[in-house]
């Protein structure tokens, strides 16, 4: 049970806030930190708000980094946060490949 009223303090800018964490969607550390201060307390809410981990690599590159930024702001260990949900397909796949039907050839 988490009471979201839990106040983590005022947002204060940091010198590395312009560091890009999610390269596919170009989301910075500062944007992720700001989202946590706006009440997004897990990776799922942060990525729905910002799109980090929703681009071409689906978070394979930045997933752990995003998690550690969120955990750092809340004051938790990164292992205490759930990973982002992995979703099919494993690799980006063109629509016409999915659309193929069984043929007799």
């Amino acid at each position: 049970m988490t009471d979201r009223q839990y106040i983590i303090g005022e947002f204060s800018p940091a010198s590395d806030d312009d560091l890009i964490i999610c390269r596919c969607e170009e989301i910075t550390k500062g944007e992720i930190r700001r989202a946590v201060f706006d009440g997004m307390f897990n990776i799922c809410e942060v990525r729905r708000l910002l799109r980090c981990g929703m681009g071409l690599c689906q978070g394979l590159t930045c997933g752990r980094l995003v998690k550690s930024v969120i955990a750092g702001e809340i004051g938790l260990s990164a292992t205490a946060l759930e990973d982002a949900t992995a979703r099919a397909p494993m690799r980006p796949t063109e629509m016409f490949i999915f659309a193929k039907e069984v043929t007799d050839e």
């Binding site: 929703m54 681009g55 071409l56 689906q58 979703r87 099919a88 397909p89 980006p92 796949t93 063109e94 629509m95 016409f96 999915f98 659309a99 039907e101």
Partner: peptide, 18 residues
């Protein structure tokens, strides 16, 4: 995907990411 390509053939080479 079959339904979409039936109406929008131009989208057939777009990749599904999720």
């Amino acid at each position: 995907c079959r339904a979409i390509i039936g109406y929008f053939p131009a989208l057939q080479h777009l990749k599904i990411v999720r």
